[in-house]
Computed example of a mutant assay.
Amino acid sequence: MNPTEILPSHIAFEGHRRLASGPLGVVALAVRRAMEGKASGPVLVFDNATGRTIDIDTRGSDAEIVARFQPEGGDAAADQDDTPDTPRGRGRPKLGVVAREVTLLPRHWDWLAQQPGGASVALRKLVEEARRANAHGDNRRAARERAYHFMSAMAGDLPGFEEAARALFADERGRLGELIAGWPEDVRGHVVWLGFGEGAEEGAEENGEQVEG
């Protein structure tokens, strides 16, 4: 399971206590209220896609904060491509391709030149096949890295951190749980959630957001 399929997009911690989770606008409001109420510990906001901390601007009214972090609607590039004034050439449609340099050995170019559609089509097919074949491994690697980034920020000075990190990268779920059993509950829960997609917080799957008072 890819943890990002069940995770809300962002989460905030006040010290070692989970403050809020959900869309960034909702989390930003909770952060602003915590800071106004003289938070009992450092307030950190994490992007759950990467496990890294981010800086947010909590100035302004509630409506301004929510609007500031509202996801951009629509695909501007796609809309531009569909405008009647955009000239379109004959033949192949726009694919959104990006030109970059690729360095290969002569025998590789020789093989690509013999493929139907030419080198570009063959390379795209090879990349897509590799992505599908390696999807599970890529997801697991990304999950380990997310969890590690979060652990480093929130638990780098907690007992057993180094051993826990080794267990995480070894995919030893049970051992990781044993090593972090003494960590603050919200911290260890989010580590497991980021790393293995388990222990989702109540309510997150229902509406994608949750705020703690």
Rank of each mutant, 00 (worst) to 15 (best):
Gln70Ala: 15
Val127Met: 11
Ala122Gln: 03
His108Pro: 02
Val45Arg: 01
Ala113Asn: 15
Asp186His: 06
Leu123Val: 15
Gly15Lys: 06
His10Arg: 02
Ser21Asn: 05
Pro184Gly: 00
Arg141Trp: 12
Val121Thr: 14
Pro116Trp: 02
Ala12Asn: 06
Glu178His: 07
His16Asn: 06
Asp85Arg: 08
Ser120Pro: 01
Glu172Trp: 00
Ala28Leu: 08
Thr83Val: 13
His108Arg: 05
Ala147Cys: 11
Ala135Pro: 01
Leu176Glu: 01
Phe150Arg: 08
Met35Lys: 13
Arg146Gln: 12
Ala164Tyr: 00
Gly160Tyr: 05
Gln115Gly: 03
Pro84Gly: 05
Ala130Ile: 03
Gly182Thr: 15
Arg132Asn: 07
Gly22Thr: 08
Arg88Leu: 14
Gly51His: 02
Leu179Arg: 01
Asp85Leu: 14
Phe150Met: 06
Ala30Trp: 04
Ala34Gly: 08
Phe161Glu: 06
Leu123His: 03
Gly199Ile: 02
Phe161His: 14
Ala49Gln: 10
Arg18Thr: 08
Thr4Lys: 11
Glu145Met: 10
Glu205Val: 07
Gln115Trp: 02
Glu72Phe: 08
Pro159Ser: 05
Met154Arg: 10
Thr58Ile: 15
Arg68Gln: 04
Glu101Asp: 13
Gly51Ala: 03
Asp75Lys: 05
Ala78Arg: 13
Asp55Arg: 12
Arg175Asn: 10
Arg17Ala: 13
Glu5Trp: 07
Ala135His: 12
Thr53Val: 10
Phe13Ser: 04
Pro84His: 03
Gly189Cys: 05
Arg88Lys: 15
Ala30Ile: 00
Phe46Glu: 04
Glu178Lys: 09
Arg175His: 03
Ile56Asn: 00
Asn139Lys: 12
Tyr148Cys: 03
Ile56Ser: 02
Val187Leu: 03
Pro71Gln: 09
Val97Glu: 13
Val66Arg: 15
Arg173Glu: 13
Leu104His: 02
Ala130Lys: 14
Pro116Leu: 03
Glu185Lys: 11
Glu14Cys: 10
Arg18Lys: 14
Glu178Val: 04
Tyr148Trp: 11
Leu24Ser: 08
Phe69Glu: 06
Val45Trp: 06
Asp138Val: 11
His190Ile: 02
Gly208Thr: 05
Val98Leu: 12
Tyr148Asn: 14
Ile65Arg: 06
Gly60Phe: 06
His10Gly: 04
